Simulated assay, not measured.
Amino acid sequence: MVDNQGIAVTDLGGLSLGNFDPNATFLKADDVRDYANYIFYKNNTCARNNLANVSYVEGGITKYKDITSEEPVTCSDISSGISGNTGNWSISGNQTLPVGVLWFEGNVDITLSNTKNFVNTIIATGNIQTYISNANTEIKVRGTLKDYFSYAPNHYYLLNPNSDKFQRVCGLSTSSPPVSLVPRPTQYCNADGTLKDMNTSPANIANILFLTNGYLGLDSIPGGKSQVNYYGNMLSGSLAGGTGNASGDFRGSGIVNVYGNLVVKNDVKTSLLGNINLQLKQGTGGGNTIPSKKVILLSGLRYM
């Protein structure tokens, strides 16, 4: 590992840097499509899967069913916060998004909001990039910003004190027994609102925040006025191979906190010559695992 002047870096400030066999198996988006809840294809067709308590009307009566294999659904009916249908998708973090794992064919741009936590697993066959909404305007007007937070479902369930964790993670109410407010993801959520064993597959897909076959771009906020926080495992660049292209791009000059594992195949770059404070915080227990028969991760920054 070298810095911008080509000088070898020996002090990583406590970060764990692991080297892997370049021929090692790397988790790809297609490996986990069957575990997703909402699937977005380039040809403007969508599907849903692994859901319980899906409502439908039959003979004027509302009934409920479970979905255990891909069922077609109109893309626009999934969420008004998701747009695009030609392989370039946009997600608005301040809108209501479907609960669970979202799988995309193509590239995904995510605009984060400082007024609403982002809680989902996002998987893409292309690139994933996050952007900060109105950061420069907010700094000029108010001088300070709220922090930004993005969570994998399991990490939100475990770490966030808000009472909405049952709804945001499992689509359930906080009543006892819980009531289904929206379809419940069955890969990792039990009917009573508890989570399944996060050391097992496919439940541990809920530990993934972002998984992309291409590159992962993360925004920071200029001048360190606020922090951008990511809770969960992030993996990128499974198809980068020997192209020489970067698989990780950390933009800006602010602070990015990663609470989990950051796995990058091929190079990492920073858009402002490294003027970014990337802090990795150790994840623990079942939160470090991802779907089985693939790479099992320990905490740290890793190059494949």
Rank of each mutant, 00 (worst) to 15 (best):
Y259I: 14
Y259L: 11
Y259N: 13
Y259T: 09
Y259R: 04
Y259K: 12
Y259H: 05
G260C: 05
G260Y: 00
N261V: 12
N261I: 03
N261Q: 06
L262D: 00
L262R: 02
L262I: 08
L262M: 11
V263G: 05
V263R: 00
V263W: 03
V263C: 07
V263M: 05
V263L: 13
V264Q: 00
V264M: 04
V264H: 02
K265Y: 09
K265M: 07
K265P: 09
K265C: 06
K265R: 11
K265I: 09
N266T: 14
V268K: 04
V268Y: 00
K269D: 07
K269R: 14
K269V: 13
K269N: 10
S271V: 02
L272N: 10
L273I: 13
L273H: 10
L273G: 13
L273V: 14
L273C: 15
G274V: 00
G274L: 01
G274W: 06
G274T: 03
N275A: 13
N275L: 12
N275E: 15
I276W: 04
I276P: 06
I276E: 10
N277M: 05
L278V: 08
L278F: 04
L278D: 00
L278P: 00
L278E: 03
L278I: 09
Q279E: 14
Q279T: 11
Q279D: 13
Q279F: 08
Q279G: 06
L280W: 02
K281D: 11
K281E: 07
Q282V: 13
Q282Y: 13
Q282H: 13
G283I: 04
G283Q: 07
G283V: 10
G283F: 01
T284G: 01
T284S: 07
T284W: 03
G285P: 06
G285C: 00
G285Y: 07
G286Y: 03
G286A: 14
G286T: 12
G286H: 04
G286M: 06
G287W: 00
G287D: 04
G287M: 06
G287A: 14
G287S: 09
G287P: 01
G287Q: 01
N288C: 14
N288A: 08
N288I: 08
T289E: 04
T289N: 10
T289F: 06
I290Q: 01
P291C: 08
P291G: 08
P291K: 01
S292V: 10
K293W: 01
K293I: 08
K293C: 15
K294L: 15
K294H: 12
K294S: 14
V295H: 02
V295D: 09
V295C: 05
V295M: 07
V295F: 01
V295P: 06
I296R: 11
I296T: 15
I296Q: 15
L297A: 05
L297F: 05
L298M: 15
L298F: 10
S299P: 05
G300I: 01
G300Y: 02
L301I: 05
L301N: 07
L301K: 03
R302N: 14
R302A: 05
R302M: 14
R302S: 12
